[in-house]
Amino acid sequence: MTSMADKVFHPRSEGIPSEGVMDQYADGKAARVWKKFVGDSNQRTQNYKDFLIGLLRANGCVKILDAACGTGIDSMMLVDEGFQVVSVDASDKMLKHALKARWEKRKNPKYDEWVIEEANWETLHRDVQSFLPDPSFDAVICLGNSFAHLLDEFEDQRVQRRALENFAKCLKPGGLLFIDHRNYDAIIDSGATPGHSIYYNCKYPVDIKTSVLVVGGRPELITLDYCIGGTDDGDDTNRSEFRLCYYPHKLDKFTKMLDEAFG
């Protein structure tokens, strides 16, 4: 089946992992540049870290499933804070960065129990069960605008609903699901995407060109062309560019899908 992104254009970063889900990081380019965009992990995280760690601890969470770990930056923050972390991602190219980060921390005993595996949101509960006998967590986190990478190729959001149902299956009763993504309501209204936030802390100039695809009067796809400058003084020798595609979740509709997934 042709994905919605393929109907419109071919992303610069494209590929299909073994599970069959579009992996926009598969060529390795976006995976490499993403670390540059995220920026200094220590500098960027303080406000965000205080919020996330505070939220998890306030809810008594210990065992965490990072369902979109990417390069492992959020997982490492949680491991450092003493949480039991299982990290999964559909992109093996992103996971290579997480595995490398774990290897570099191998002398730190906190990292001995950090589990990193490949998994697909559509079969997440089954995938996690294949390497973990009890795939039941105090919290499931899906951060960094990751969930919106899952496009609506059937045009009825069935795949996205299935993913949310899998998140629910991985949670203990009373567990916490934490998903964040960009403010697509504002992006659709303004046609622009902010280049900086407390989550991303790139030290280079960032420009994000935004395109909104409207089908039948409804926004169906947003493409963001990231352009990251080489230096602050305008030297573009190390300029980086990549394109990612997102489904523009609007708050009201997304809230209803969450309500349905959790009954």
Rank of each mutant, 00 (worst) to 15 (best):
L55Y: 08
E153H: 15
A139H: 11
V128F: 12
P133E: 12
W34H: 11
D134V: 10
W103P: 00
G20M: 09
S130V: 09
Q46K: 14
L151M: 02
K93S: 11
G144A: 08
L99A: 06
I73A: 05
S136C: 12
T71M: 08
D80N: 15
T45P: 01
D40W: 05
Q43C: 00
S75V: 04
H97D: 11
Q129Y: 13
A26L: 13
I64Q: 04
L55H: 13
M22K: 15
Q43V: 11
G70K: 07
L143M: 14
G144D: 02
R44K: 08
D74H: 00
S91K: 09
V79N: 03
W103V: 10
W34Q: 07
V115N: 06
K49L: 08
L56M: 09
A58M: 03
R57K: 15
K105T: 00
K35T: 14
K107D: 14
V38A: 09
A26T: 07
S146W: 04
R102F: 01
G72D: 07
F51R: 06
D112R: 12
A90D: 05
R44C: 02
K100L: 12
Q129L: 05
D27G: 04
K105Q: 04
V140Y: 05
F83Y: 12
K29W: 02
G28S: 03
W103D: 12
F131Q: 08
V33E: 09
Y111C: 01
V85D: 08
D127L: 08
M22D: 12
Q46D: 09
E81M: 00
D23K: 05
L52F: 02
F37R: 07
L150S: 02
R44D: 02
D134F: 04
K110Q: 10
D112Q: 14
E122R: 13
D40C: 03
V128D: 02
A67T: 08
Q84G: 09
V62H: 15
A139Q: 12
D92S: 15
